[in-house]
């Protein structure tokens, strides 16, 4: 172990850590939001016309490698950019083609959110299916509309049931955020690798980077547990 090397290493890793955090936090938030909405539609079957397309979305993102999804969005979308630009110019449309040229950062957040959302939606869907039929009957009997039932009964119950699973997915997200290195985003893993390659010190470097991930995961798990406890209801979900 070489103290001088670590002195050099920490600032670099810190920088990477910040970018990782900037990728993870929005992806986790957006992913959860997507998951709740998509899971709600797939779990309740309403609105009906959205169920098929969302099933396809989920099987695509759960069924293909995340690395491939990143590469397709980052390197593949620009291929659509040129024809889209021509189309937009010809039809006097706004500059939609710019959406096809994403920064590594934007592409990572987009893909991670969509992937995470697909997994979250499965947890939420399962939780909705586990809600007892009587809860819906009672809501209907009291004159609640479908939307009111959804907001006041289904979502509060489903989120509580799905929470441990969703926490697990966020833990995964923290670690698969390292795949952003494929798009040359300068996040934790990619700066660690650059350092390790340059100095030829793989063990120390990745060990140190691993500590950052461990820290992040511990903090996320702690937050999730706190929330779970805060919203716990005696006897619910047992």
């Amino acid at each position: 172990m070489d103290a001088a090397y670590f002195k050099e290493l920490w600032p670099v890793l810190n920088e990477g850590f910040w970018l990782s955090l900037k990728i993870i936090v929005p992806s986790a938030t957006l992913g959860l939001a997507i998951g709740v909405l998509v899971g709600a539609v797939r779990g309740t079957g309403y609105p009906k016309f959205l169920v098929r397309p969302l099933n396809i979305y989920v099987s695509l993102f759960r069924g293909t490698a995340l690395a491939m999804q990143l590469v397709v969005v980052y390197y593949g979308l620009p291929d659509l950019g040129r024809p889209l630009k021509a189309f937009c110019l010809a039809h006097d449309l706004p500059a939609l083609w710019k959406l096809c040229y994403l920064s590594p950062y934007a592409a990572s957040v987009l893909v991670f959110s969509l992937c995470s959302g697909a997994y979250h939606s499965e947890y939420i869907r399962g939780a909705i299916l586990s809600i007892k039929k009587g809860q819906f009957q009672a809501a209907k009997a009291l004159g609640l509309t479908r939307a009111q039932t959804f907001r006041t009964i289904v979502i509060p119950q489903a989120l509580r049931r799905a929470w441990p699973g969703c926490g697990n997915e966020i833990v995964y997200l923290i670690k698969y955020s390292s795949l952003a290195m494929l798009l040359s985003a300068k996040e934790l893993t990619s700066v660690a690798k650059a350092m390790a390659d340059y100095e030829f010190r793989y063990t120390e470097t990745f060990f140190a980077a691993g500590l950052y991930y461990l820290f992040l995961v511990s903090v996320a798990a702690w937050i999730m547990r706190r929330l779970e406890k805060h919203y716990a209801i005696p006897g619910f979900g047992r």
Partner: peptide
Amino acid sequence: QDFNLFDH
């Protein structure tokens, strides 16, 4: 018959 109170 089984009450159907909202559990949460």
